[in-house]
Computed example of a mutant assay.
Amino acid sequence: MELEHLHTACDLMRRHDGRDPADILLLKLPNVLTLEPNKQYLHEDAGRDPRQRGAAQRARRDVRARIPRW
């Protein structure tokens, strides 16, 4: 999704500013994404009480219920 936003922003920059996005963008993006195993996290999450996992969902649902519908 973010790459599509960048693509759209570059198109708008070319169209409206008449500038080349390559002038301000890096030629090569830094490698900031690291993929690590998540098995330990999944085991920890599976050991929790299911009622705790649903607390955040219930809180979001409660907030949505208080927002007025137009």
Results as ranks from 00 to 15, higher is better:
residue 9 A to V: 07
residue 9 A to G: 06
residue 9 A to I: 07
residue 9 A to M: 11
residue 9 A to Q: 09
residue 10 C to F: 05
residue 10 C to P: 01
residue 10 C to K: 12
residue 11 D to C: 05
residue 12 L to G: 07
residue 12 L to K: 10
residue 12 L to F: 02
residue 12 L to E: 12
residue 13 M to G: 03
residue 13 M to N: 02
residue 13 M to H: 02
residue 13 M to D: 04
residue 13 M to C: 12
residue 14 R to V: 04
residue 14 R to H: 04
residue 14 R to K: 14
residue 14 R to C: 02
residue 15 R to I: 06
residue 15 R to G: 01
residue 16 H to F: 13
residue 16 H to K: 08
residue 16 H to E: 12
residue 17 D to S: 10
residue 17 D to Y: 10
residue 17 D to I: 12
residue 17 D to M: 13
residue 18 G to N: 04
residue 19 R to V: 07
residue 19 R to Q: 11
residue 19 R to T: 07
residue 19 R to A: 09
residue 20 D to F: 07
residue 20 D to L: 05
residue 21 P to V: 00
residue 21 P to R: 04
residue 21 P to L: 01
residue 22 A to R: 15
residue 22 A to P: 05
residue 22 A to W: 00
residue 22 A to D: 10
residue 22 A to Q: 10
residue 23 D to M: 10
residue 23 D to A: 14
residue 23 D to E: 15
residue 24 I to E: 08
residue 24 I to S: 09
residue 24 I to R: 06
residue 24 I to L: 11
residue 25 L to E: 02
residue 25 L to K: 08
residue 25 L to H: 08
residue 25 L to C: 09
residue 25 L to N: 10
residue 26 L to A: 14
residue 27 L to T: 11
residue 27 L to R: 15
residue 27 L to F: 03
residue 27 L to I: 01
residue 27 L to Y: 03
residue 27 L to D: 10
residue 27 L to K: 14
residue 28 K to N: 11
residue 28 K to Q: 13
residue 28 K to E: 07
residue 28 K to T: 13
residue 28 K to H: 12
residue 29 L to W: 02
residue 29 L to A: 14
residue 29 L to F: 06
residue 29 L to D: 04
residue 29 L to Q: 08
residue 29 L to C: 01
residue 30 P to Q: 14
residue 31 N to D: 15
residue 31 N to V: 04
residue 31 N to Y: 02
residue 31 N to W: 00
residue 32 V to F: 00
residue 33 L to F: 12
residue 33 L to K: 09
residue 33 L to W: 11
residue 33 L to E: 13
residue 34 T to A: 07
residue 34 T to S: 14
residue 35 L to T: 05
residue 35 L to A: 09
residue 35 L to E: 08
residue 35 L to G: 01
residue 36 E to P: 00
residue 36 E to A: 10
residue 36 E to M: 05
residue 36 E to F: 02
residue 37 P to G: 13
residue 37 P to F: 00
residue 37 P to M: 01
residue 37 P to H: 03
residue 38 N to F: 09
residue 38 N to Y: 10
residue 39 K to T: 14
residue 39 K to P: 00
residue 39 K to L: 15
residue 39 K to D: 15
residue 40 Q to C: 07
residue 40 Q to Y: 04
residue 40 Q to D: 15
residue 40 Q to K: 14
residue 40 Q to I: 06
residue 40 Q to N: 14
residue 41 Y to S: 10
residue 41 Y to Q: 11
residue 42 L to A: 06
residue 42 L to T: 08
residue 42 L to H: 09
residue 43 H to T: 06
residue 44 E to G: 01
residue 45 D to S: 06
residue 45 D to P: 00
residue 45 D to M: 15
residue 45 D to F: 08
residue 45 D to C: 02
residue 46 A to C: 08
residue 47 G to P: 00
residue 47 G to H: 06
residue 48 R to N: 11
residue 48 R to F: 08
residue 48 R to Q: 15
residue 48 R to T: 12
residue 49 D to Y: 05
residue 49 D to V: 03
residue 49 D to L: 06
residue 49 D to M: 03
residue 49 D to A: 11
residue 49 D to W: 02
residue 49 D to P: 00
residue 49 D to Q: 10
residue 50 P to E: 12
residue 50 P to N: 07
residue 50 P to M: 02
residue 50 P to G: 03
residue 50 P to S: 09
